[in-house]
Design a protein around this nucleic acid. Structure first.
Lengths: 246, 246
DNA sequence: TCGCCGTTATTGTCTATACAAAAGCCGAGG
DNA sequence: CCTCGGCTTTTGTATAGACAATAACGGCGA
């Protein structure tokens, strides 16, 4: 069996996107470490039975997003992940903490299952009374509280979340691993800590926090809404850009 | 003369990127308002004397970034600007304000020319004593102070900035229009307003602010560093993503 | 007038081909 | 041994052609 036997087309959507996913999946899942060689366009072209233009389109798009690095003659390899991706792509605090070398821990503050109240239905963008899971928790890095997470999950869109062991794995991480998303939206703003958040993050009430709110969808159905609050100094979102060369 | 006579190739780099720029420029400059019809692929193909694939590649890339909206048979139009673009691409508060329908105004608080002090050289990432322009100003939307800007400009990289009429045009805007950049980096965080910022933004000292710091380079030479501070509620950075579908 | 349906303009995707540009590789020559 | 130059692999760009999908439009009939 070929060493890249884990890549395969899934038959969904345009070919170039299938190829994209086929390559992106093992990278994002961590099965292909940075530096790992990716088959050349010719090889992929034969393996998938498509034209080189189509392979090229897929790989160019991945390169454009910094997932892979390409060099003429040298070939294509999995790019070393920069902070960049973390900001814009999906965003997992436990991975972030692990990367910095610290230990991640988590305290579950609240966990409720039930029909969505009007306000909740509104933010999650589901009909009222949709069954949802509400989670409130606090992440810590080496014991230092670093992020307060308030999350709503559309249970219908994430079957299995109710039986997930959320003491061991961050809910964001669990969802990333188990529920494929097709669209996400971030809103980033500053806000002042309310009493509850201040208590859990061990900061002064009213002190500045960075708030990231994220909606995630699969097609038209909302999967989850998360409001992630970090103390002013604890988190900086960094992104690097080009003048958007296609 | 054709109604789209303001689009032309510039001869720099690959054709598809030239076409991209040719279309993007009048949109970003505001000459083409949202909803304005963009010539069909066939027209562009003839106008530029390139193949349709090449035009398509350029337009697909612009559509991917949300600058234009395409619909089969209906054609291509300038997209209604969502906040989205503003986050990732370069970022111009005066355009943002204008887009929201308000009037932008600006007060120049400080303007100094001279060799970079060590601390300044450090943030701008130039050698000490490099001639720099230091600007401090405050932007307002309909008279309401909305953003405090602290900027360092590498004069060598932006010839002409010294004679620009910075009372009329925001320095960020001027730089965008006059100095081509190849790379930019954003850092986003929350911070508490210090005395000076609080006074200018008319907010309480210590209240939460959103801070965006941006470095811009042309090749290896730094062009400018800007620290943009907005009161907590005034600004929300929004971004929408796909699992990075090309 | 209104609704339905075929026409057609426009974009989306894919293929096959071609040539250019970069850069690793390797062998000839010193 | 080292260096230089050519060979070759790999990616980058562009073209022409084809067919599919979509949806606006216009005309026709009730």
């Amino acid at each position: 069996m070929s060493p890249d036997s884990d890549i395969a087309l899934d038959g969904e959507g345009p070919l170039h996107q299938q190829i994209r996913r086929a390559i992106a999946r093992p990278i994002l899942a961590g099965r292909w470490p940075p530096g790992r060689r990716i088959p050349s366009e010719h090889e992929l072209m034969q393996r998938f039975g498509v034209s080189r233009m189509t392979v090229n389109r897929a790989l160019a798009s991945l390169a454009n997003e910094g997932l892979i690095a390409r060099k003429r003659k040298a070939g294509t390899v999995v790019a070393i992940p920069s902070a960049e991706r973390a900001v814009f792509e999906i965003w997992d605090i436990s991975a972030e903490i692990a990367r910095s070398g610290a230990t991640h821990s988590m305290t579950l503050i609240r966990r409720e299952v039930g029909p969505a109240a009007p306000a909740e239905a509104d933010v999650l963008r589901v009909p009222a009374d949709t069954p949802i899971l509400r989670l409130v928790l606090c992440h810590a890095s080496d014991g230092e509280p670093i992020q307060f997470e308030d999350r709503l999950v559309n249970i219908a869109a994430a079957p299995g979340i109710l039986s997930a062991r959320l003491e061991d794995i961050a809910p964001g991480r669990w969802l990333l691993d188990h529920v494929p998303w097709t669209e996400a939206e971030h809103a980033i703003r500053a806000a002042e800590a309310n009493a509850e958040i201040a208590a859990h993050l061990k900061i002064r009430r009213g002190s500045a926090c960075l708030v990231v709110e994220r909606h995630t969808w699969r097609g038209d159905t909302p999967i989850t809404f998360a409001r992630l609050t970090s103390p002013a100094g604890a988190q900086v979102l960094v992104g690097r850009f080009r003048p958007s060369a296609g």
